[in-house]
Design a protein around this nucleic acid. Structure first.
Length: 509
RNA sequence: GGCGACAUGGCCGAGUGGCUAGGCAGAGGUCUGCAAAACCUCGUACGGCGGUUCGAAUCCGCCUGUCGCCUCCA
């Protein structure tokens, strides 16, 4: 199997990816807290890891992808004070907390589906795993990593020598930070809650050995990840901002409880920014996906399709920030449409050419790669598919560099445009088409062959053909007024006529 | 204050010690009744100052600037 180099946040460098069990990959990605609509920042994260999963599968790994849904109300503010987010939202919308959870879980999946993000294999809800979380807390107490204090349970960070290894923080720093609340019953300000006592007003509450309460903010991931992926998992992903404290705490909980390394490779995606500022729900500058799809946001002049959003995100690396602006989206859209038109042209040409001789003679391409490429390509020449495949895989193997891969697609496919337009096609067009269907469709998820043209929408297409034929004969007779009238009136209906060398075509706008 | 990133041509955005990333926009051209679309060609950029090197945007140091985390957050 090909070797993937991936950037491991734990070691801060690229490392060859070797899963714990050959051929199998367990991956856990922190999912959303379902109390609001997903925004572009969520999309960046989940599209990024979607491609990771897709590519691993493409290489032949059997992947189990687990992504939680956080539906336990965690607190809005400080670790010890503040309000329950779910409860707050439920009051705003006058719904039950679980209605809020259901509603936004549904909307989360709806928007991810639209972005062509494959569903995780398991989407555990935190509230469905309270017993597992309690069991984990119990183990931590038994092993001396946690202590109870008046119905609350805290993790004792001093009990784990390498606490802070992911974020590079030391305990002194954490204490010196000074922003940790002066709360009370913790032995150490850096200790974090595993279980919180519920006061009377708290709606979401469960019974536990320590009284009624609710789980701390980090246990759910530890409990659910290890339940389905084992005590050591291959890849754990999430947003950069979760590195500390969330992921640091996950490590502490799992390694404290099980005494084995929790995660082999930590992957963190970078932020989406808006005017240089992080886009975040709590910052009030988030544009939700729904708003993108409908164009209903004051910063948007119009709607943007999910395909364009996905392409836009993939055009920058997952570890780079993606700075959003409508201008950037617009150029992504133009580029995307451009790429799709090449892909469609290849697809159509392959369909036409099916009978023709695709002889699988791919070695012919290697020779051509060497030097002069100014020769006129003829239909007999084959496209250098091997080179395309190799470069694309090289990009992906280098820490999932989708941005570079997209560059390669443009670069290597562009020469085909004029060839295809002239009605010729390389001899191995069918294999090329198949490969692109796989790579652009199943790996990047940015394109599936359109069902346009033959077959679909017969009555309408038939009517259009009549109009085009009439106009064509008018043009032949130089009756420009008639021809232009047809074109103009169709344009008023949102149908664009374009005259090409091979006849006219129409497009719905 | 502590920790960590990043600064690339008009815009977006990859990147490696020496060879044109790519996209968008723009310019010119071909085609065309006109329009549109297509197609072809074109841009030599890497925050500042030093250093290492035959050679650095790419390595090292310093400076400046921007951002993230340290509190819920993809």
């Amino acid at each position: 199997m090909e070797e993937i180099q991936l950037f491991n946040t734990l070691t801060r460098k690229k490392e060859p990816f070797v899963p714990l069990h050959e051929g199998f990959v367990g991956i856990y990605v922190c999912g959303p807290t379902v109390y609001g609509d997903p925004h572009l920042g969520h999309a960046k994260s989940y599209v990024s890891f979607d491609v990771v999963v897709r590519y691993l599968r493409h290489l032949g790994y059997r992947v189990r992808y687990v992504q939680n849904i956080t539906d336990v109300g965690h607190l809005t503010d400080d670790a010890d004070e503040g309000e329950d987010k779910m409860v707050k939202q439920s009051r705003l919308e006058r719904l039950e907390p679980m209605e809020i959870a259901e509603k936004y879980t549904y909307r989360y999946f709806r928007d991810m589906d639209r972005l062509n993000v494959l569903r995780p294999d398991i989407s555990p809800r935190a509230t469905g795993y309270i017993p597992e979380q309690i069991a984990m807390v119990r183990t931590l107490i038994e092993k001396g990593h946690a202590y109870e204090s008046d119905g609350n349970v805290y993790f004792d960070v001093t009990s784990l020598p390498d606490y802070g290894k992911l974020s590079g923080r030391t305990l002194d720093e954490a204490e010196a930070g000074g922003r940790v609340g002066v709360s009370s019953d913790k032995r150490n300000p850096a200790d974090f809650a595993l279980w919180k006592k519920a006061d009377e007003s708290h709606i979401m509450r469960w019974d536990s050995p320590w009284g009624e309460g609710f789980p701390g903010w980090h246990v759910e991931c530890s409990a659910m990840a290890t339940k389905y992926l084992g005590r050591t998992i291959d890849i754990h992903g999430g947003g950069l901002e979760n590195m500390f404290p969330h992921h640091e705490c996950e490590i502490a909980q799992c390694e404290g409880a099980f005494d084995v390394p929790f995660v082999r490779y930590w992957m963190h995606n970078n932020m989406v920014t808006l005017n240089g500022q992080k886009m975040g729900k709590s910052l009030g500058n988030a544009i939700t996906l729904e708003e993108f799809f409908t164009g209903s946001h004051k910063l948007l002049s119009r709607a943007w399709t999910p395909e364009v959003i996905r392409f836009f995100l993939l055009q920058s690396h997952y570890r780079s920030t993606t700075d959003f602006s409508e201008k950037a989206l617009e150029s992504a859209e133009s580029g995307y449409l451009n790429l799709v038109s090449i892909l469609e042209a290849i697809h159509k040409s392959a369909g036409r050419d099916d009978s023709g001789g695709s002889d699988g003679n791919s070695k012919a391409g290697n020779g051509a790669a060497g030097g002069e490429n100014d020769g006129q390509a003829t239909a007999d020449e084959s496209f250098n598919l091997q080179k395309l495949r190799d470069s694309l895989h090289a990009c992906m193997n280098d820490d999932f560099n989708t941005a570079k891969a997209i560059g390669v697609l443009f670069e290597q496919l562009r020469p085909l445009k004029s060839i295809l337009q002239s009605g010729k096609s390389p001899s191995n067009i069918t294999e090329l088409s198949e490969f692109l269907k796989l790579f652009c469709g199943e790996v990047l998820g940015i394109w599936q062959p359109g069902e346009t043209g033959e077959g679909g929408d017969l009555p309408f297409d038939g009517v259009m053909q009549i109009l085009l034929d009439l106009r064509q004969s008018a043009r032949k007779n130089k009756e420009w007024a008639t021809a232009d009238q047809i074109r103009n009136r169709l344009a008023e209906l949102g149908i664009t006529i374009e005259d090409g060398p091979g006849g006219s075509t129409y497009k719905l706008s």
